[in-house]
Design a protein around this nucleic acid. Structure first.
Length: 311
DNA sequence: ATGTTTGTTCCGAT
DNA sequence: CATCGGAACAAACA
């Protein structure tokens, strides 16, 4: 892990399983390779200052590969970092001479070590992804943008609750806000909420420590399982690892994409929550706010009828 | 033709 | 001024 200035450096904080997989594979395969050439495809819109900064990478060797939240960070020197964010449809592929061509290629880094030549390709169909060249200070600024990581062993249910409550919205939305919790995406957040028996529409203000304890545990479980299975590849085959191979976590989804709850056989509900497709089981993930207000209105109704009696 | 999509940022409304 | 939520970014697929 890149060292956070003055902070605990021993805790490894893997987050999004797909990015983690790519980062680890890159680390095993491109260290000490020299950047010989960089080809930017003409159809790729890249800010001119980034284009200029890329030139400063020529002739340098790759020192390390790491990850900050969902960013892949390639360390070129102590003060020079190449940073990728894949967003929805970005890919990093590591190819050799003669390999088949790839779709949606935007930038190719030709790298070489002891005569071994490889092609590091940045591909992006929808072009929501981002490439940056940063110095150490800018990298620290990037790192500081992110909230707590659920895989950080120092995070407690209390700290988790405090972080989530700072955003007054539903729990699903808070979990996806990287400034609050970094690393969970739509699928993993959906599955983590299911495992914790929490309705995705629950207000963060209605959470308690018992719930965040469960959610912390389920989030860690989901992310660790995703990492073990090298991420998830949906039917569109958008995510693949650096060798072009899909992950396996899609075979272990808990509730995402399901029609029937695997635990209780209830019909799974699908709803757009803050614009993101969300699956949940109405039985295993009851809406506590609804129960609460139903109870409350019942109490009020009783009160009114009592008052009427008195009159 | 329309609606859908693994993420993030920006801007208007409150 | 802070915070929230929806639109926008752009392309392929069903």
């Amino acid at each position: 892990m890149l060292e956070k200035s003055g902070k605990n450096t021993k805790s490894k904080m893997p987050e999004l399983p797909e990015v983690h997989t790519i980062t680890q594979d890159l680390k095993k395969n491109i260290l000490d390779f020299e950047i010989k050439n960089i080809k930017i495809y003409p159809n790729y819109k890249i800010p001119s200052d980034v284009k200029k900064k890329l030139i400063s990478l020529y002739g340098k060797k790759i020192q390390n590969v790491d990850r900050i939240a969902k960013n892949i960070v390639i360390e070129i020197s102590k003060d020079l970092f190449l940073v990728f964010h894949l967003a929805m449809t970005g890919r990093i592929l590591l190819r050799q001479e003669g390999d088949k061509t790839d779709s949606w290629v935007k930038i190719v880094f030709e790298i070489e070590k002891n005569g071994d030549k490889k092609y590091l390709k940045f591909c992006d169909m929808r072009q929501f992804g981002k490439i940056q060249v940063l110095n150490k200070k800018e990298l620290e600024l990037l790192e500081n943008k992110y909230g707590i990581s659920v895989l950080d062993s120092e995070i407690t249910p209390d700290k988790f609750l405090e972080a989530l409550k700072s955003k007054k919205t539903n729990i699903k939305n808070a979990l996806l806000d990287q400034k609050i919790v970094s690393g969970l995406g739509n699928i993993y957040a959906t599955d983590a909420l299911f495992l914790a028996n929490i309705n995705p529409k629950t207000s963060t203000q209605n959470l308690n420590t018992n719930m965040t304890e469960k959610l912390l545990k389920s989030s860690r479980e989901i992310l660790n399982e995703g990492i073990k299975n090298r991420g998830s590849t949906l039917p569109d085959k958008m995510y693949v690892d650096i060798f072009g191979k899909g992950g396996n976590q899609q075979n272990y989804f808990k509730i995402y994409g399901k029609k029937v709850c695997p635990v209780c056989n209830s019909k799974v509900e699908f709803e757009k929550i803050n614009g993101r497709g969300t699956y949940f089981c109405p039985t295993c993930q009851p809406d506590i706010a609804k129960d609460f207000s139903a109870k409350k209105s019942k109490v009020e109704t009783n009160k009114i009828s009592e008052q009427k009696k008195l009159l």
